[in-house]
């Protein structure tokens, strides 16, 4: 449920910061599923994987926000549709 909410946010919203926040929600939901499963079957593996997800989320958000700053300086906008004019 939380994951699908994050996915909806990713698809619907056009503000890049809100898109990144939705990504965080999705990663959080995946981690929650891991921890609940680990708790259900009495294994520590779920919490270990949650630690890895936490690490990856922190890295991803740092890079993503740096990219958002670059985009804002280039295009003076946070609208994701503006970026579709990029030519590789």
């Amino acid at each position: 449920m939380l994951f699908s909410l994050g996915l909806i946010g990713l698809l619907v919203r056009r503000n890049l910061i809100v898109v990144l926040m939705s990504l965080e929600v999705m990663l959080n939901a995946a981690g929650l599923a891991f921890v609940v499963a680990g708790s259900r079957w009495q294994q520590a593996d779920g919490q270990i994987v949650f630690l890895f997800i936490l690490t990856m989320a922190a890295t991803e958000v740092a890079i993503g926000l740096a990219l958002v700053l670059q985009v804002y300086h280039q295009f003076k906008s946070l609208d994701a549709d503006v970026l579709s004019e990029m030519r590789g």
Binding site: M56, A66, L69
Partner: peptide, 14 residues
């Protein structure tokens, strides 16, 4: 290593 890559990448972009 992922954290190191993230650090270098964020510094480079910034």
């Amino acid at each position: 290593m992922l954290l190191l890559a993230g650090l270098v990448g964020a510094y480079h972009l910034g």
